[in-house]
Design a protein around this nucleic acid. Structure first.
Ligand SMILES: [Zn+2]
Ligand SMILES: [Zn+2]
Ligand SMILES: [Zn+2]
Ligand SMILES: [Zn+2]
Lengths: 142, 142
DNA sequence: TGGCACACGTTATAGCATAACGCAATTGAT
DNA sequence: ATCAATTGCGTTATGCTATAACGTGTGCCA
C-alpha cells in the first residue's frame, strides 16, 4: 500500500516520455516512444526505459503486461476514492480494446478486496497485481 | 465462454512440450523449454511456440503475461465448479511467488462476476482476462 | 573538498516472438 | 483411388522487447 509520489519534479527525459504518452490515443511500446522522441534527442532504448521506470514508480504511467506497452495514468489527481492519493488504495484494472486500442482504466474495490482475501487465506503477500481485460469496446462492438 | 477442448490427441511435439511443463517446478519461458528439448530433436523456437499455441488453445497450458512464461494448467480434470469442463466457466487467476517461482492457480467466481458486471455496464465485450498477483508465498514470507 | 546519489549517454548484448518458405502427413470429400 | 484442403513440421532469417556494463556530469551535503 505504499503511498504514491505526488507531483514529483520530472527530469527532461521523464517529461518528454510522459508527454508523448499523454498525447497518444492508446498505449505505446517503449520503442514506439523512442521513435517519437528521436527529434528531441533520444537515441537509445535505455533513455526511454529509465524514464518509464521512474514514471511507473511515481504512479503516472502504467505498464500493460499483456501488450508489453505503456499508458499514461487516466486518473488525473483525485477522480475517485478520496483526494490526491493516486492508486495507493488498491489495484488498477484495464479494459483493452483489441480493435481500436483504446484503454479504459478503472478501480474495483470489491475485486481488490476479494483478491486480498484470497491472498490472506493462503498466506500470500501480494506486491503487485495485474488485471487486464482484453476484448472489444462498446463502439467497436457495434 | 468457449467450451474448452477435452483430452485432445497431442502431436509428438505438443506432448513433449506439455511434459516438460508438467515436470517443471514453476513456469518456463519458451526458450527454456527449447533448451530442455534439444535432446529430443528440438532446434528452433517456432517448434516450441507452435506447440504452446495449441496447448493454450486446449486449455492445458496458461501463459503468464507478467513473466512471458508458461505453466501447465494446475486443474487436473475437474477439481472445482463441476466436472470436466476446464476453465470454460470463467477466468483463471495466478499468484506468483517472486522468491521461489511457485505459481498458484485459482478461480474466483465472485471476481469473475464483478469484472463481467463492470464490462456489461460499459458495453465492453471481454475475450480474455488476465489476473496475476505477484508477491511472496507463505513459505518464502516466513 | 571529498563522497554520494542520481540522471544521463552510448555500445553491446540478452531474451522473447514471428514471418516466410517448402515439405510431409492427414483428412475427407468426390 | 484421387485430388484438394488442412494441419503439422523443420529451417532460416528477422523483428521486437529489455537490460548489462561502462563512463560522464551535476547537485548536495558532511
Ligand atoms: Zn492510473
Ligand atoms: Zn474499440
Ligand atoms: Zn488452468
Ligand atoms: Zn515462494
Amino acid at each position: 500500500m505504499n503511498a504514491p509520489i505526488v507531483n514529483p519534479a520530472l527530469t527532461k527525459n521523464q517529461a518528454l516520455v510522459f508527454d508523448a504518452l499523454n498525447r497518444a490515443e492508446g498505449p505505446m511500446s517503449a520503442y514506439t516512444i523512442l521513435d517519437k522522441l528521436r527529434d528531441h534527442g533520444f537515441r537509445a532504448p535505455l533513455q526511454v526505459y529509465r524514464a518509464l521506470d521512474k514514471l511507473t514508480e511515481f504512479g503516472m504511467v502504467h505498464r500493460l503486461e499483456s501488450l508489453n506497452a505503456f499508458v499514461a495514468c487516466a486518473h488525473r489527481e483525485s477522480e475517485c476514492c478520496g483526494a490526491g492519493h493516486g492508486h495507493g488504495h488498491g489495484t488498477v484494472a484495464f479494459a483493452i480494446c483489441e480493435s481500436c486500442n483504446q484503454v479504459l482504466e478503472f478501480h474495483d474495490h470489491a475485486v481488490d478486496h476479494l483478491l486480498n482475501d484470497w491472498a490472506n487465506g493462503k498466506g500470500f503477500k501480494p506486491s503487485k497485481t495485474t488485471i487486464e481485460i482484453r476484448g472489444v469496446c462498446e463502439k467497436c462492438a457495434a
